[in-house]
Structure formats: structure tokens, C-alpha cells
Write a protein that binds this DNA or RNA. Structure first.
Lengths: 347, 347
DNA sequence: GTGGAATTTGAAACCGCTTTCAAATTAGCC
DNA sequence: GGCTAATTTGAAAGCGGTTTCAAATTCCAC
């Protein structure tokens, strides 16, 4: 082999030939095993050697090859994170939190998005599996329970937004029902009796919970559930806008709206604005999620706060516990209502 | 061989022992090299064997071990993507686009965020390098030119938002000056003469471009540049809110504002609203970036559209060209103005 | 049918690190 | 000091692929 060439510092457009652990070992006058042990802290090593190795590492600017580590060690030190749309503010916040939660450990995150499509999500997950991630965090999943259970035999799972049984599945209990209940109760407490609801996509577990909370609040207050006051959206601004327009077009009477997420609330508020209706004077609006932007809408949005960031961070921490073999114990705070300026007492 | 054992589906909480290429080879009655060749298309293989191997792969549900591939092949088939904050809507959109652009290839993205801090960004990049990414896309970077040039010797770079010379550095020319000029020109064309500006973080190349565009428009229209009409923000909603309050507190007179990004425009609009000023009746507001939400603010925001998504996708495609050894040729469309309802002619 | 070129194949080396196992060293104790 | 026990160390065998190189086939023209 042209080792002579290799000794030359790489110039030109060519890639610098990487420093290997073996080169470090040679430089420090020890065996590769010793270097590895120092790197991983897997065994005691005489102090003089530790120092020599550290010096060699610094001198050569050694950076362990992750692929080799993964292959030899059987662990990739990376966690797959599945979301549905990386560009939604909701997932953005969750991802940032997961990134933060993983930070203190040596694990790093691999983000992929399923776009609310089973096939896409499946492909993403295959991808993660072939990359041998040590665990997968699913921030909402479109796949059926059985499939997740099967997957959990290959790799441990953390799941938010849904409850699925399984030895190696840890669910962060994030039932949305109480949050939706809280929001609706608040409106009722403010004297509203005709409360519309812009729901999430039908057949989506989380969306159903939010609708259930709304219904529960109504029935607890002995208010009739009026089907014509409920319209489905798709969790997007545009969807909320369209939903509100449909609602308005039917001529239904209401003094308040509960939107199943903040983005739809934004859209709904714009639709109201376009019709000359002022929030909260004419209609009170409550959202769900408390996105960072919700403090800056006009008017600032009253919304259910559940600490997306907190959930994300907990998920990350739980995942670390899980892959390190401990059993995580997660307790999440409940939902609270961030009361801002999009609601008012009825009189 | 305990083939009998191997046939049992894996049970219990134990991880399923992964299927290896060698098992596929045995099952198909060929050598591992042949399987590899079929997998990668690196050589012709007799058709009967191809079929046998495909069948074996399907039967065993073989999924190549990515770490082994990376180690042996020297390519990780992954691209590092550096942003500053994964939870900002701007980066969210960019990341989604990059993900999309990479989709058709076999490369996948590794997202990391630098949080506008040099040290964080440096750490992220080291991380990517140790994971042997085949290329790095920097959607804005805080590091000095020289450091990027040094980095480019290790791995090819794609850089947006800044121009840095280098053999293996490809810059997507995304000079913000013309966009800012466009926005300010529009306000001037609408008859505004006293135009305030909420700038980005000082010392940030991109922010400076946006300020330059603003100044250029003023001077082209022979309008005086008034220092008291310019305040610095930090590209966040809260920053825009605070900046507008400072502006208002000084008692400066203005009929329009150019905010260096949409999020600051949101904050500014809220600050105006709180003081009883109506947009656009009392003050016209123009933003920059055209975030998806900007169509749904109240009022919908007039803003500079530069196709973040387009930039992201181009970056991804250029990166593929680059790592495949071709030389990318990217031409981006210029900035346009999305005229909505936050501006009005002065009279 | 035969020789030689072209095409397919498999054996084996290697990618860079971890880890086992046994040898070498050091420590502890009588 | 001598002997055993405890601690450090290095050699070598993988991890699961890719790739080189030469052997084995197949092809083709004569």
C-alpha cells in the first residue's frame, strides 16, 4: 500500500485521510485496546498511559469513526425520532426539546417525517432500523398498534399521543381529553352556552380525544351537544380558516369556539376577521397546544398549554433510560390553560 | 447449522437477531460478494442468481446494516444539515424542503442545531464529521470563513445565506439585499416617506444585507436615512415586539415599517395593536421570508418571498451532485413581494 | 471441437473499532 | 524474598458489509 503517500498531509480537493484509533495507539506507544478502553472508560488504565493517549488524541485531532463503533459495539448511539411534519411549529418545538433532552447523553437524534401517511412512516422507520438506531421516539404515529408492537421487538419504542401495550413500548401518557375539557369548561365558566368546535382530522386518536373533552365538558354543564356546531379541520391554518367559513356559512349561532389546535385557531380568527367579527368581542376563541407564536397573535390566543417541550424532553430522557437498560418512570404535568386575550366573559 | 432454530420467529423481549448479508447468501446458495453486487448494482450477475437472492432477501426480510456499509464502503449515505434552531418556522420550512430534496436519492439527513452560538455549532459539526457524513449543508452558519474553508477539506459543503470561497464549498447565492430593497421600494412606491426598520441581530451577515437593502432603497429615492428609525431585533417575535415598543417610546414618527423577518413583524404588529394603532390604517408593515403563517396573521402580512423551500430543495439537490462527483449548477429565482393586507398606499 | 477473450463468481483482505482471553505486570502478605 | 491474588495490558477475533484479484464459466469465431 502506498503508505508513503498517506503520510503527506492532504492538500487539494481530496478528502483528508482520517486519523484512526490505531494511529493514536502507535503515537502513544500503547495498543489499540488500551486506547479504546480510555475512550469508553471500560477499564482502569495506568495514569501515565492515559495521559500519553490523551496527548496523542489531541495532537492528531483524532475523532472516532462512528460507523466502526456502531458495527463493533452493536450500538449506534443514535435515536430515531419520527414526526409527521418537521415544518409544523408543533413538531418543531417537540424536536427541539428532544434534541435538548438527548444533549447531555452521547446519543444523537435522527429526525424523519411521515407526513401523516402510513406508507411514508413505514419507509422512514425501515430507514431508521437499517441505520440501527438504538431506540425510536414516535411523536404521534399513524401505524396500527399491532405494527408498533411488532416493531418493538426489534427496537425499543417511546410513543406519545397514544397508548399501546408492549414490553418495550413506553407511552408518555398524553391524553388530550382533560386539556380539551379544561378549555371548554373555561368557556362555559365565562358564560358561553353556544360553543362551536373545530376538530382535528377524523379517525385520528388524538383528535378524537380533543373532541371527547369538548363533549364531556358540555354534558357536565348540561349543555346540549349540537352537531351543527362541530366541524372537522386538518390541524392546519388553512384548514381552520376553511372550517370557520363553513361554520359561518351555515348560519349557526355561537359565541365561542374551541379549536383543536392553535394553528386552526389562527385560521379561524382570520376567517372571523374577514367577516368583520372581532375576537373576543363577538366570538371568543380557545386553541390547543400553546405554540410559541400564540403569545403574538392578534389578539394573543387563549389556549391549552401542555408543555410540548416538556413532553419532548421527557421522551428523550425516558429513551435514554430505556436503552441503558433502566426502566424509565415518567410523570408529566397535566394541562393548564394559558388565558390570554382571545376570550372574554359573555357578560 | 442449527437451521431448525433459526426458523423460529424470535420471541420474548430480546432483540431479534438481525439478518446478515451472509445469511442471505447462504439461503440463496451464492457467495456474499454476489449478494453485495446485486444490492449495489456494482456488477452484472446472472439472472437466475439475482432472482434467488431477491427471494432470499424477501424471505428473510434482510435489511443491510448501515454501519457496516459505511465502514466498508467509506460512504455513510447521509448528509449533515446544520441550522440554528430547529424550532423556528424558517428553519422548519428549510428542513422540510431539504428532506424532500434528498428523498429521491438514497441519502438521508442528519439535522443538528447550533443555536446561534459558535461553540454549539462547532460541536454539532464535529458530531457530524465523526458520523462520517458525506456532505454538510449549512443553512446559515456562525463560523468564520476560514474555519469553513478548513472544514471543507474534510467534507464538501453547501452554504446558504453567505458567500465563502472554496473548492469544495458551494454557496447558494441568497443575498438578501435585493429582497430588502424590494420591500422598501414597495413602501416608497406606496407613498411612504418615513419608514422605520426593525433589523436583525447586529454583526450578522444576513441581517446586514437586509439593512443594506433598506438603506439602498431610501437613498435611491433620495429619502434621508434616519438613525432613530432603525432598531435592532433578534429575529424573534418577542424581539420584534420589544423593538417596536422602543421605537414607539422614542416618539419617532413613521407611517411604515420594514421588519427584517416575519417573526419580528408579528411581534411588531402586536405592539402596535396594544397601543391602539391599526395595521395598515395607521402603520404599514412589511416582513421578510414569507413564512407559511404569514398568510394567516391579522392582517395577513405583506412580505418578501424568497422560496425558502426552493432554496432548501436546491441545496439538497446540489449536495447530491456534489457528493456524486458532478459539479452542481444552481440558479435560484429572485425574491418577489407577496403583497397582502398589512400595507396600504399612503393616500 | 478448440483456443482465447469476456463475463461471472467466490475467497479473502480490509474498513476502524470493541471485546475476550490469556499473558505480563504489580501489589499484598507471610 | 517468595508466592498468590489483583490489576493492566496486548494479541487477536469478530462486527457486517465492500472490493480486489484470480479462478471458474461462458461465449464466440474459427
Amino acid at each position: 500500500m502506498r503508505r508513503a503517500d498517506a503520510e503527506q498531509p492532504a492538500q487539494s480537493g481530496a478528502e483528508e485521510s482520517a486519523v484512526t484509533l490505531e494511529m493514536v495507539a502507535r503515537e502513544a506507544g500503547v495498543s489499540p485496546s488500551t486506547v479504546s478502553r480510555i475512550l469508553n472508560g471500560t477499564a482502569r488504565v495506568r495514569d501515565t498511559k492515559v495521559r500519553a493517549v490523551r496527548a496523542a488524541i489531541a495532537k492528531l485531532q483524532f475523532m472516532p469513526n462512528n460507523a466502526a463503533r456502531t458495527l463493533a459495539g452493536g450500538r449506534s448511539m443514535s435515536i430515531g425520532v419520527v414526526t409527521q411534519a418537521i415544518d409544523s411549529p408543533f413538531y418543531g418545538e417537540a424536536l427541539a426539546a428532544i434534541e435538548k433532552g438527548l444533549l447531555r447523553s452521547n446519543y444523537s437524534a435522527l429526525f424523519v417525517s411521515g407526513h401523516w401517511r402510513e406508507s411514508d412512516e413505514r419507509k422512514c422507520i425501515d430507514h431508521l432500523v437499517s441505520r440501527r438506531v438504538d431506540g425510536i421516539i414516535l411523536v404521534t404515529s399513524c401505524l396500527p398498534d399491532a405494527e408498533l408492537q411488532r416493531l418493538s421487538r426489534t427496537v425499543p419504542l417511546i410513543l406519545t399521543g397514544r397508548q399501546v401495550e408492549g414490553e418495550r413500548i413506553q407511552c408518555l401518557d398524553a391524553d388530550s381529553t382533560p386539556g380539551a375539557r379544561l378549555a371548554t369548561d373555561y368557556l362555559i365558566g365565562q358564560g358561553h352556552k353556544r360553543i362551536a368546535c373545530i376538530g382535528g382530522p377524523v379517525n385520528h386518536p388524538d383528535a378524537e380525544q380533543r373532541l371527547d373533552g369538548y363533549k364531556a365538558a358540555l354534558s357536565a354543564a348540561r349543555l346540549a351537544y349540537a352537531k351543527q356546531l362541530v366541524v372537522a379541520g386538518d390541524y392546519s391554518d388553512a384548514g381552520g380558516y376553511a372550517a370557520m367559513n363553513r361554520l359561518l356559512d351555515t348560519g349557526a349561532q355561537f359565541t365561542a369556539v374551541f379549536a383543536a389546535n392553535d394553528q386552526m385557531a389562527y385560521g379561524a380568527m382570520l376567517a372571523l376577521h374577514r367577516r368583520g367579527l372581532v375576537v373576543p368581542r363577538d366570538v371568543s376563541v380557545v386553541g390547543f397546544d400553546d405554540l410559541p407564536t400564540s403569545s403574538f397573535t392578534i389578539p394573543p390566543l387563549t389556549t391549552v398549554h401542555r408543555g410540548i417541550a416538556e413532553v419532548g424532553e421527557s421522551a428523550a430522557e425516558a429513551m435514554i433510560e430505556l436503552v441503558e437498560g433502566r426502566s424509565p418512570r415518567v410523570r408529566l404535568g397535566g394541562a393548564t390553560l394559558a388565558v390570554r386575550e382571545s376570550t372574554r366573559p359573555l357578560r
